[in-house]
């Protein structure tokens, strides 16, 4: 565990907590893409099946359980508890265009042709694009609340920090995983436009609003 990995994990944890707090305090899921959140629930479920097969550490296990659990709570909030506030008209990204190609790719490009390994690979690929319905929603409505922007920034930072973690691990531990690194790069690149808006607008006290 190096500093980049730890701060990355904390950033990921913070993103999830920000999102849950936003929904709970405002009693609303406005501006949040239910489709992205369903994708994240699928990502965590397919990646952390190794909870049943291997034990790494208390830290590892509790984070995995937390990520899976909160992802289902989030989906429940959007589609049940706060359903009247869910903006489905603007959440129109076609997720099958992500799931089908990503599933095919995981089947073709993986480290080992076994069920758990293919599901893990699928999860890594899917995570890299899972935010697209959310980014699509922001661009469609042309705005994002500050709290949603903070969520997206924390969530995007997490994978960017993992990239630094992988550079560190490559040099000091000889560790290198091409699938994770390529997917991590794709994931981080998808956030670049948002990072720019966040730094130039949200940090100066303005909310993100795009020209129509």
């Amino acid at each position: 565990m190096n500093i980049f990995r730890l701060v990355g994990d904390m950033s990921h944890l913070l993103a999830i907590i920000i999102l849950l707090m936003k929904m709970w305090k405002s009693r609303s899921v406005a501006g949040i893409s239910g489709k992205s959140q369903i994708l994240f629930a699928i990502v965590f479920t397919t990646r952390y099946l190794d909870l049943f097969t291997s034990f790494v550490s208390i830290y590892n296990t509790s984070m995995k359980v937390f990520f899976i659990g909160t992802s289902y709570v989030t989906v429940y909030f959007i589609y049940q508890h706060f359903k009247p506030t869910y903006d489905s008209n603007h959440d129109t990204f076609r997720v099958e265009f992500l799931i089908v190609p990503v599933g095919g790719l995981a089947f073709l490009v993986n480290h080992e042709f076994s069920l758990l390994e293919i599901l893990w690979t699928f999860s890594i690929y899917l995570e890299s694009v899972a935010i697209l319905p959310q980014l699509f929603m922001v661009s469609k409505t042309g705005e994002a609340e500050s709290i949603t922007s903070h969520y997206l920034f924390a969530l995007g930072s997490y994978r960017a920090l993992y990239l630094l973690n992988w550079i560190y691990r490559y040099y000091f531990e000889g560790f290198f995983d091409l699938i994770a690194v390529v997917a991590g790069c794709v994931q981080t690149i998808l956030y670049c436009d948002f990072f720019y808006l966040y730094i130039t607008k949200v940090l100066k006290g303005k909310k993100i609003s795009l020209p129509a």
Partner: peptide, 10 residues
């Protein structure tokens, strides 16, 4: 060993 690959990461 391959099995220990990314499994310690989240």
């Amino acid at each position: 060993k391959k099995d220990a690959r990314v499994k310690d990461e989240l």
